[in-house]
Design a protein around this nucleic acid. Structure first.
Length: 146
DNA sequence: GCCAACGTTGGC
DNA sequence: GCCAACGTTGGC
């Protein structure tokens, strides 16, 4: 799961303990969240910053439920087409698990032949919620000391 | 249903 | 700040 640290960082998650992953407004990303199950592990990726990369580990605390921000009129994530009866956007609750002992920068991931097929490294990959294979996941965890 | 225009993402 | 990639919108 990607987040701009200026908006929401791994340190903020550590402070909060758990947070609803609100504001995702992309159907594919939403569907990835709907597929998540309690206890699933999450790589927390810092995007649009220097350096970008994997900053830590989260765990799914609650499965997909309606994203409250879609109902907040005037709010950044308000959606006129969404109703309580028929919500459009969903979010999962993500709990803090661990901060990377070693931050894994994107540049290092790109240089790593084990990770060449990882979704986040593909050209134009902008999805904020992506599937990570077991192999890539454990490799990143090794690099990060997680 | 096509596709141009536009907005957003996010690395560089 | 640039720009490629890509999703969405809306006219036709």
């Amino acid at each position: 799961m990607k987040s701009e640290p200026e908006t929401y960082s791994i340190d903020q998650l550590k402070t909060d303990g758990v947070t609803p992953w609100e504001g995702v407004r992309n159907y594919q990303a939403r569907n990835h969240m709907k597929a998540m199950r309690k206890g699933d592990l999450v790589l927390f990726y810092h995007s649009s910053c220097d350096p970008a990369g994997v900053a830590g580990l989260g765990v799914i605390r609650a499965e997909a439920h309606p994203d409250e921000s879609q109902f907040q009129r005037g709010g950044l994530y308000f959606d006129t087409k969404a109703t309580r009866e028929k919500p459009i956007w969903y979010c999962v609750d993500v709990a803090f698990r661990k901060k990377a002992k070693r931050f894994v920068p994107l540049s290092e991931m790109r240089a790593d032949t084990e990770l060449t097929s990882m979704v986040v490294l593909q050209r134009g990959s902008r999805l904020s919620v992506q599937l990570v294979s077991e192999a890539h996941f454990s490799h990143i965890c090794r690099l990060a000391g997680l």
